[in-house]
């Protein structure tokens, strides 16, 4: 992982295009197959062992299709699926962007500046050790239950695990690499953008992955505790009114949102870390 800063030449030598295409296609087929099989298992189980709590998947999907299709932005809550998703994303996306920026800057600073490392690392570990969910009451006490609270909790919950990855990633860069940059008098911004960031990128990505998972969990929970819109609120709202179909549809929607995030991250990683996977395979 540390020998990350080699130039791109190895990519063109090592990664024959044809070899990469084929598994992608069969992988897609496999994914569709597994998803279909899981759906069939759900459907069959729900029909064989009828339960009022777990309806067949087909009914859930059908219900979602008919009851979410309103496109009117002022439609009553729960009928316009895009409005719900938008409400949730308006909390999640700014928080993730903010946490990423703060995490990168602070993380690199802590990794490179020794005094900051000594002073802040214990603080980082302490705040990180507080389970993200236990941070929520603090922020409700501080900021009430509005969007400011939700975004701040998500930022704080997501920031620390991410930042630790950034710190490790930067510290793992070979000292030789750093020394070479000094010898050649690479200027600061080049050093940051072209050596430190790319070198730490594999770790940064695993941090991003962790961060989006935690961010999503915290978003859902804050929406359940205090909100009047968003997908998390919708699921709890449906449960409280015993709308089982709506509830499961909401759960599936949250799963899809989570999958969307990991999918986007995968694409980004494939694009930005091509040199890294080429080296390590």
């Amino acid at each position: 992982m540390s020998s990350a800063t080699t130039t791109k030449t190895s990519v063109s030598l090592q990664g024959p295009r044809t070899a990469r295409r084929r598994p992608a296609a069969s992988g897609l087929l496999l994914k569709a197959g597994v998803l279909l099989a899981a759906g069939i298992v759900w459907e069959a189980a729900a029909r064989l062992f009828p339960s009022i709590f777990v309806p067949p998947l087909s009914k859930v999907l059908q219900h979602a299709w008919t009851s979410w299709s309103s496109l009117d932005p002022n439609a009553t809550f729960g009928t316009n699926v895009f409005a719900m998703i938008l409400a949730s994303f308006s909390r999640l996306v700014p928080a993730i962007v903010l946490a990423t920026l703060i995490g990168l800057v602070l993380g690199v600073a802590i990794a490179r500046i020794r005094i900051l490392d000594h002073l802040l690392t214990p603080v980082v570990h302490f705040i990180r050790a507080i389970p993200s969910t236990a941070k929520i009451p603090i922020f409700i006490a501080l900021l009430g239950i509005g969007d400011a609270m939700k975004i701040s909790v998500i930022v704080v919950a997501a920031l620390f695990p991410f930042m630790l990855n950034v710190i490790h990633g930067v510290k793992d860069i070979h000292d030789t690499t750093v020394d070479v940059c000094k010898v050649y008098r690479i200027n600061r911004s080049d050093f940051f953008l072209r050596v430190l960031l790319p070198g730490a990128l594999p770790q940064i990505f695993s941090g991003l992955r962790l961060m989006t998972m935690i961010a999503l969990i915290v978003m859902v929970l804050t929406e359940m505790i205090g909100a009047s819109d968003g997908v998390g609120y919708y699921v709890l709202y449906a449960e409280r009114r015993f709308l089982v179909l709506d509830m499961w549809a909401g759960v599936l929607l949250l799963g899809a949102m989570g999958y969307l995030f990991s999918f986007v991250l995968n694409l980004l990683e494939l694009r930005l870390l091509r040199w890294h996977t080429a080296q390590n395979s």
């Binding site: 998972m213 509830m247 799963g255 995030f261």
Partner: peptide, 11 residues
């Protein structure tokens, strides 16, 4: 994995 666990609290 991407399904946030807390989504399963209501069910």
């Amino acid at each position: 994995r991407p399904l946030p666990v807390v989504a399963l609290i209501p069910p």
